[in-house]
């Protein structure tokens, strides 16, 4: 043990000589003099020594400890003094950024919408994209040969199914499954058979909303949409309703939002009207309620189809719709 102690002392002194800065000094202190340091562990061994050896070794150990502490203290003083002047470095260098990934802009906007609706007690649902003719059209009062099918050019898939042309395909599915009262939104991908250019895409995103309860009225629809859009845009927005025909609502509306580029004064974006078309909506057609298994005498509701892609493009001023499905990281890294 005496040998160990002397060897420790030697090592300590030789390492101390190499000390140049604070950090290393602190390390040495822990290594040799700390509570779990080498000296402490040797000292703990003293209690296991033979009775006759204890006093001598103990004394030696204490002397060495005292010496180490003294020398350490002196070194520390010298180092601390020289360290008053901090090491210089160029603080104007860029910080070390952590690499992060990016969410798709549609995901970001969709979540804002979902959160706003969730606060009003709307649940969020998802459903099939490969859909039957029944749920996409027939159950929504759009039988075969209905001219409304013209405005929704459809991708047909083998097996008599289709790619849903709107998120409205979930209206009847949800009513069948959950009944009334119902409050929900269904965001997701929809498809229209058309060729793509800067302002047309065959693949885009919508958020359908459906609320069915007793005595739901036109005034409710306006109020709900106005509060929600204000939440999404972080400011009070004005909306207006005008007639619009969609077979699954009656009455049916187009909802316009006050153009927030010109704030209603008229500009090229809103074609000088001060308003931008935002979404079709209306009171749920009694036929749709019936298809969903509800009694239209007892329940009424409203539905809307918010164009998520359009909202994303408006929000970020994206002028080419194709960028959204491009997977181009130069674009996606901006969000």
């Amino acid at each position: 043990m005496e040998k160990k102690l002397r060897e420790l002392k030697n090592r300590f002194f030789s390492e101390l000589k190499t000390v140049r800065d604070d950090d290393f000094l602190a390390e040495l202190k822990i290594k040799y003099l700390g509570r779990k340091g080498e000296l402490a562990s040797i000292l703990r061994g003293v209690k296991d020594l033979a009775v006759e050896e204890k006093p001598r070794v103990g004394q030696l150990a204490n002397e060495i400890k005292k010496e180490l502490l003294e020398v350490f203290g002196r070194t520390e003083a010298i180092i601390k003094k020289s360290a008053i002047r901090p090491r210089n470095f160029d603080s104007s260098l860029p910080g070390q950024r952590r690499e992060i990934g990016h969410l798709h802009p549609s995901t970001i906007v969709q979540e804002e919408i979902e959160e706003a609706f969730a606060k009003l007690g709307f649940s969020i649902f998802d459903g099939p994209q490969l859909e039957s003719d029944y749920y996409n059209f027939t159950a929504l009062n759009i039988p075969e040969d209905h001219p409304a099918r013209d405005t929704q050019d459809t991708f047909w898939v083998e097996g008599k199914n289709l790619l849903r042309t709107h998120t409205s395909n979930l209206q009847v599915r949800m009513l069948e499954k959950y009944g009334a009262p119902f409050r929900g939104i269904f965001p997701g991908r929809v498809f229209r058979y058309e060729s793509t250019d800067a302002s047309h895409e065959h693949t885009f995103y919508q958020t359908e909303g459906l609320m069915v309860d007793r005595n739901i009225n036109i005034g409710n629809l306006i109020a709900v949409m106005q509060s929600l859009l204000s939440a999404v845009f972080h400011k009070k927005v004005n909306v207006r309703l005008r007639p619009g025909f969609f077979p699954f609502v009656e009455p049916g509306f187009e909802m316009d939002i006050e153009c927030f580029i010109c704030e209603g004064d008229g500009c090229s974006v809103c074609k000088q009207s001060g308003w931008v078309e935002l979404m079709p909506c209306g009171l749920v057609h009694p036929g749709v309620l019936k298809a969903g298994g509800l009694d239209p005498e007892e329940y009424s509701g409203f539905a809307f189809g918010l164009g998520l892609t359009r909202l994303v493009m408006m929000k970020y001023r994206i002028n080419d719709i194709r960028l959204l499905q491009s997977g181009d990281l130069r674009f996606l890294k901006q969000f």
Partner: peptide
């Protein structure tokens, strides 16, 4: 349509659905 007064619907709270 825009002469119709509007107010948020008054409805019964529902149990949230955890999905």
């Amino acid at each position: 349509y825009n002469n119709i007064p509007y107010q948020l619907p008054q409805v019964v709270l529902q149990e949230p659905i955890f999905d």
